[in-house]
Write a protein that binds this DNA or RNA. Structure first.
Length: 593
RNA sequence: GCCCCGGUAGCUCAGUCGGAUAGAGCACCAGAUUCCUAAUCUGGGGGUCCCAUGUUCGAAUCAUGGUCGGGGCGCCA
C-alpha cells in the first residue's frame, strides 16, 4: 500500500509544522534530521501531565547530531515560533518535547466536528491509487458460515476505513462457480430431487449433505429434465466410501448424471442450484450491511478467454515451459517453493491458472492496488499469485493479502462445535438471528485479524454494560435523550452561543472528552493504514467511557444559558463522532434504546 | 522437514514508527441513584509481557536461537 503517512489531523499537523519550522532555522539539526519524518516523531501523550503531544525528535537526533538529547530539545524549543495553538512546551524525561495545546485549539476542533458532521474524520477523496478490495468470496456450495461473517465484517469495515481515508475502493466478491465442485453441487441437488420423486438412491459420502440442498431441489424448475429410474442411476457404479473411494464415486455419479440428463439437462439443475445459493449469500450479506460493487464470476474468466489472455502474456514473456505433458509456471524464479502447473497433462487448466487470470484482470481493469482478504489457510497460496503478477510485469507489491485467522464460538464458557453435519450452530444467518447484526459486526472486528477470534455468544447477546457495543450505542442515544429532555423543558439549544461560551468548560471531564474527540481523525487514519478496525473499536469504547463519566459527574441542562449551550455543544460533537465511528463499523447509532 | 500466525493480569484481548510508571473489558472486592436513561458512574487488589542471547541512550515491540499452540505445504477447488 503506498502512502502510509501524512494525516488529516489538524492538531497533529499544528505540532508537526511547528517542529519542522523550528528545524529549518537550525541547519545543523536539520541536516541530521534529513532522513527523518518529523510527523513520525510526534505522538499523543499517554499521560495528561505530559501535555497533549510529545516529540521524541531530540532523542532520535542525538546520535546523528552527536549531541545530548536534552540540549537538542532546548535548541528546538528556543527556535519554536509563537503559536496561538500552543500554550506551553517543556523538556521532559530523557529528552521529550512536550506540547500543551491551548484551549482554543480544542474549541476549533469541536467547531470543526459540528460543521463537518458526517464528513468529520474523512479525508478528501483522491483519484489514486484505485483499490480493489476482494473479500468473502466463499464457494457458492452452501450458506455462509460464521467464519465468513468475520471476513464480511472485516472486509466491509476496511473498505469503509479506506474510503474515509480518501481512497477510491471497489468491493468485489469472486464467485467460484466453475469446476468440479459445481458438478458436485449439481449432482447433490439432482439426487435430492430423485429422492423427492420417490426414487431411492443412496446419497454419496462426497456430496453436499446439508438440508439446504433439499430446499433447492424442491424449488427449482425441472421442466425438460429427464426422469430416470434408480437402476439407470446406480448400475455399474464403483463403491462409495467406506468400501470404495468417495471421490471416484462422486465422479462416476457426475458422469452418470450428464449421460442421463444430457449436458443441458444437468446444466439446468446445476445452474439453478448455483443461482439459488448465490442469491442466498447475497441476501444474507445485504442484511448484514455488506454489499459489493461486483460479483465476479469464475465462469466468466473462461467465457471471456481471460485465462488464455493471461497465459499468453506469460508465454510472451517467456514465463511458461512444458514438462511431462503439462504447462508450468516457473514460480521458483519469484521466490516460491516450487514451480506450478497451469495446464494439466489432460489439457484442463488448473485453479491457479484461473487465479492468475483473475488477478491479471483486476489490474487490466485499472486497479492499482489489490487487497485480497483470505483465510489463514490460504497463506501458502499468496506467494504464487504474487509471483504470477510479477511475471506479468506488475509490481509484486501491488498485491496485498490480509489473512484472517479462524473464529470459534463460545456459549456458557464452552466451545460450540461447528459442523454442518452435526447440525449445530453453523451459519452466519443463525448467528445474526441470535446476537443481532450490530453485535455481530462489532465483535467480528474487535480483534486483530491475525488473532484467533473467540466469539462469546453470551456477551454478544447480553443487553447490559458487559456488552461494549451497547455501551457505545447508549452513549449516542443518551445525547439524543438529553436533547429530547431539553425540548420537554421547552428549552432550545443555541449552538452559536455554545461555541462562543466554550471557555466555560473547565471541568476535567470536559477537557478529557475534548481531547478524546480530537483524536478521532488520527484513529481513523491509523485504522485505515494498518487495516486494523480494532483500533477504532477500542477508541469508541474509550470515548463512550469519557462521555458516560462526564454525564454522571455533571448535569448538562443547567439553568445558566451560557454554560448549558456550551455543554450541549460538547456533547453534540460527541454524538457526531460516535455516529461517524459506528458508521464505519457498520453498526447502527440509535437515538433511543 | 519447510512456511505463516499467535503466546501480555484469573479469562478475552489492545499496545501504532522502539520511548516516559505496560493498558482495557470481563471476573472479584467495596461504594454511588430526591438529579438529563443505573444499558451508567467511582474506588481497589491483580503482571517472569513464553524462555535465552543480542542490537542501543532506551525492548512487550527489532534480530537470532529455542519452546508451546493453531494453520498451510496437490497436475484439488
Amino acid at each position: 500500500m503506498p502512502p502510509r503517512k501524512s494525516g488529516p489531523s489538524v492538531m497533529k499537523h499544528i505540532v508537526t509544522q511547528l517542529v519542522e519550522n523550528a528545524l529549518a532555522g537550525l541547519p545543523e539539526l536539520a541536516e541530521a534530521a534529513s532522513d527523518l519524518s518529523i510527523e513520525d516523531t510526534v505522538e499523543r501523550t499517554r499521560d495528561a501531565s505530559h501535555g497533549d503531544f510529545a516529540s521524541n525528535i531530540a532523542m532520535r537526533l542525538a546520535k546523528p547530531a552527536r549531541k545530548n538529547p536534552r540540549d537538542i530539545a532546548a535548541s528546538i524549543i528556543d527556535a519554536l515560533a509563537e503559536s496561538a495553538d500552543v500554550s506551553r512546551t517543556e523538556i521532559a524525561g530523557p529528552g521529550f518535547i512536550n506540547f500543551h495545546l491551548s484551549p482554543s485549539a480544542f474549541y476549533a476542533e469541536l467547531a470543526s466536528i459540528l460543521q463537518k458532521g458526517d464528513s468529520y474524520g474523512r479525508q478528501p477523496e483522491r483519484d489514486a491509487p484505485k483499490i480493489l478490495l476482494e473479500f468473502v468470496s466463499a464457494n457458492p456450495t452452501g450458506p455462509l458460515h460464521v467464519g465468513h461473517g468475520r471476513h464480511a465484517s472485516y472486509g466491509a469495515t476496511v473498505g469503509n476505513l479506506l474510503e474515509a481515508a480518501g481512497y477510491p475502493v471497489h468491493r468485489e466478491y469472486y464467485v467460484n462457480d466453475a469446476g468440479r465442485q459445481m458438478d458436485i453441487l449439481g449432482v447433490s441437488v439432482w439426487l435430492r430431487l430423485l429422492e423427492k420423486q420417490g426414487i431411492a438412491v443412496p446419497f454419496p459420502q462426497g456430496g453436499y449433505r446439508g438440508d439446504y440442498i433439499r430446499d433447492i431441489a424442491a424449488e427449482i424448475n425441472i421442466d425438460g429434465v429427464n426422469t430416470v429410474s434408480a437402476d439407470a442411476v446406480l448400475s455399474d457404479l464403483p463403491a462409495d466410501a467406506p468400501d470404495g473411494d468417495k471421490e471416484a464415486y462422486v465422479e462416476a455419479l457426475i458422469a452418470r448424471a450428464k449421460t442421463l440428463l444430457g449436458d443441458t439437462g444437468f446444466d439446468q439443475v446445476r445452474q439453478q442450484a448455483l443461482d439459488s445459493i448465490r442469491d442466498d449469500i447475497e441476501d444474507d450479506l445485504a442484511e448484514f450491511g455488506v454489499t459489493f460493487d461486483t460479483w465476479y464470476s469464475e465462469q466468466s474468466l473462461t467465457t471471456s478467454n481471460r485465462i488464455d489472455d493471461a497465459l499468453n502474456v506469460l508465454k510472451e514473456r517467456g514465463m511458461l515451459y512444458e514438462k511431462d505433458g503439462a504447462t508450468w509456471f516457473p514460480a521458483t524464479d519469484f521466490g516460491d517453493e516450487k514451480d506450478r502447473v497451469v495446464v494439466r497433462e489432460n489439457g484442463i487448466k488448473t485453479y491457479f491458472a484461473s487465479d492468475i487470470a483473475y488477478h491479471f484482470d483486476k489490474r487490466e481493469r485499472g486497479f492499482d492496488h489489490l487487497i485480497d482478504i483470505l483465510g489463514a489457510d490460504h497463506h501458502g497460496y499468496v506467494t504464487r499469485v504474487r509471483a504470477g503478477l510479477e511475471a506479468m510485469g506488475y509490481g509484486a507489491d501491488s498485491l496485498e493479502v490480509e489473512l484472517m485467522q479462524f473464529v470459534a464460538l463460545y456459549r456458557g464458557g464452552k466451545k460450540v462445535q461447528m459442523s454442518t453435519r452435526s447440525g449445530e450452530f453453523d451459519t452466519l444467518r443463525q448467528l445474526r438471528a441470535e446476537v443481532g447484526n450490530d453485535a455481530a459486526r462489532f465483535y467480528y472486528v474487535s480483534r486483530s485479524n491475525d488473532q484467533h477470534l473467540e466469539f462469546d455468544l453470551d456477551v454478544a447477546k447480553s443487553q447490559s454494560s458487559d456488552n461494549p457495543v451497547y455501551y457505545i450505542q447508549y452513549a449516542h442515544a443518551r445525547v439524543a435523550s438529553v436533547f429530547r429532555q431539553l425540548g420537554e423543558k421547552s428549552l432550545a439549544w443555541n449552538s452559536d452561543n455554545g461555541q462562543k461560551q466554550l471557555g466555560l468548560l473547565l471541568e476535567p471531564q470536559e477537557k478529557t472528552l475534548m481531547t478524546s474527540l480530537s483524536r478521532y481523525p488520527e484513529v481513523v487514519e491509523l485504522s485505515a493504514n494498518n487495516r486494523a478496525p480494532q483500533h477504532l473499536v477500542h477508541y469508541l469504547r474509550d470515548l463512550a467511557n469519557d462521555f458516560h463519566t462526564y454525564y454522571n459527574a455533571h448535569a448538562f441542562i443547567v439553568d445558566n444559558d451560557a454554560l448549558r449551550d456550551a455543554r450541549l455543544y460538547l456533547i453534540s460533537a460527541t454524538q457526531v463522532v460516535i455516529a461517524n465511528g459506528l458508521g464505519i463499523l457498520g453498526v447502527s447509532a440509535p437515538e433511543k434504546m
